[in-house]
Write a protein that binds this DNA or RNA. Sequence first.
DNA 1: AGAAAGAGCACCGATCTGGTGCCAATTGAC
DNA 2: GTCAATTGGCACCAGATCGGTGCTCTTTCT
Lengths: 155, 155
Amino acid sequence: MLQLTKRTEYGLIALVHMVDRRGDFVSAREISERYHVPRRLLAEVLKDLARAEVVDSQRGATGGYALARPAEEVTVGEVVAALEGAPKLAGCETLEPSSAGGECDLEPSCPIRSPLQRIREGIWQQMQRTTLRSLVEPVFHITNLKRVDPESTLI
Amino acid sequence: MLQLTKRTEYGLIALVHMVDRRGDFVSAREISERYHVPRRLLAEVLKDLARAEVVDSQRGATGGYALARPAEEVTVGEVVAALEGAPKLAGCETLEPSSAGGECDLEPSCPIRSPLQRIREGIWQQMQRTTLRSLVEPVFHITNLKRVDPESTLI
DNA sequence: AGAAAGAGCACCGATCTGGTGCCAATTGAC
DNA sequence: GTCAATTGGCACCAGATCGGTGCTCTTTCT
């Protein structure tokens, strides 16, 4: 439904929380209690983020999770990709265009494949331009794009 | 999964097809055979587009569907909204902010509500800027936005 | 009258989503 | 060494969504 999942929402909540504690390892329990999110589900999400090397994990009594990189270098797109896969806007599309070519059985009559793909890439790039830092300090990241032709249409 | 549904895909295919035949009423059967799309499902989609006044419908032997407005005035966002509802990026968000205020039970501790909402609005605005015309004549709509600060982050 | 088209509604199976249970492995604190 | 707290891995569940279909009714042209 063109909607981010709870997994991504919880993941972003956790990551933003970690920004404040750079260096410290925070447990899934702490985050789940702080923001009232299901602990077990959050742990599942953080595990995936650790696998994607967005966070470092540490086991044991004082273990937990910490950002693997500075908040400026972690993008929302990366988080989304790790937690729900690269977004596809239509079934016939893949983010990395398969070298084998289209197995889309609407081809070659499908008239919207390419345009839809560009919409998806616009959304995708937008998420990849949005860093974790910008989620923490919104004023730091007001759009610096300037409209050149007011009648133009993006994408 | 941040993915447009088949309904939207089929709807856009049908609409793009109608652009070529402005004024003519084309039947769901014609479109379904032309693009190998399930006829009954396509009919369901076109019915919703008619209800949203994106297309006009005409019953009877020579009936069918036609664009209710010029292709320049129909946006992808409008189509998506008609076929799968306004996109929400997280469950706690609504497109039209309810005047009653947040019933989000993560509040007020949720640190990402506002940023996520801006991401969603960015995606949403992008789809609303994309017209049906731009899907038909892609060269007409290369992005006219100019990067002012290459280090900046959108949203 | 008959054929062709949309309108409405109910329904189905498959998949995805949110969430939980259980247990093993790791590690610091006592 | 023991214990408690933590992550890791797997399986599982109920509900929602999604893609798709069946059937009937109404409308309209021929």
